[in-house]
Amino acid sequence: MSITVSCPTCQTEVEWSENSPNRPFCSERCKLIDLGEWANEEKSIPGEPAVIPEQEPGNDDHYGQS
């Protein structure tokens, strides 16, 4: 029995197997469209924004490393 999923971009049915190298996407094109949506912040994971510690003036050590 083969398992199929819907492509997150275009909803085309995709076989979930080694025969579908772009799974869960149907194609490289749909994969790149999805990546572009994340990069343009059109998609996001719900939750609180990350808190970035305040940097003290004159301190160039952004992450506690020398």
Rank of each mutant, 00 (worst) to 15 (best):
E18Q: 13
S20G: 07
V14S: 03
S20A: 10
G36H: 11
I52T: 09
G36S: 15
E54A: 06
V5P: 02
D61W: 09
Q11K: 13
N40R: 15
G64P: 00
T12L: 12
D61F: 10
S6H: 14
C7N: 07
E41A: 11
S6D: 14
A39D: 14
S44K: 11
S20M: 03
A39S: 15
P8S: 07
S66V: 12
K31E: 07
I52N: 01
G64A: 02
S66I: 06
E28K: 12
C10Y: 06
E48H: 08
A39W: 08
G47A: 06
I45C: 01
P49E: 02
C7V: 05
E41P: 00
E56V: 09
Q55D: 08
P46I: 02
F25A: 00
G36T: 11
E42D: 13
D34E: 15
A50Y: 00
G58Y: 02
N19Y: 09
I52D: 04
S44P: 00
P21K: 08
M1Q: 07
E56C: 05
E42L: 12
E42N: 13
R29N: 09
I33N: 00
A39Q: 15
E54S: 02
A39N: 15
W38R: 14
C30H: 01
R23C: 03
P57R: 07
T9L: 01
P21R: 03
E28T: 14
L32N: 15
P49I: 02
F25H: 01
V14K: 02
T9H: 05
S2G: 07
I33R: 08
L35D: 11
Q11C: 07
I52A: 05
V51H: 04
Q55S: 09
E56D: 11
E28R: 12
D60A: 14
D34F: 13
A50C: 02
R29Q: 12
G64S: 00
G36P: 00
S20H: 00
V51T: 13
G58F: 07
S66W: 02
E41S: 12
S27G: 07
A50F: 06
S44V: 01
C26D: 05
E56H: 06
N19S: 15
N40Y: 11
S20E: 01
V14Y: 06
E41I: 05
Q65W: 05
P49T: 00
S17V: 08
E13W: 09
Q65D: 12
G36K: 13
E48N: 07
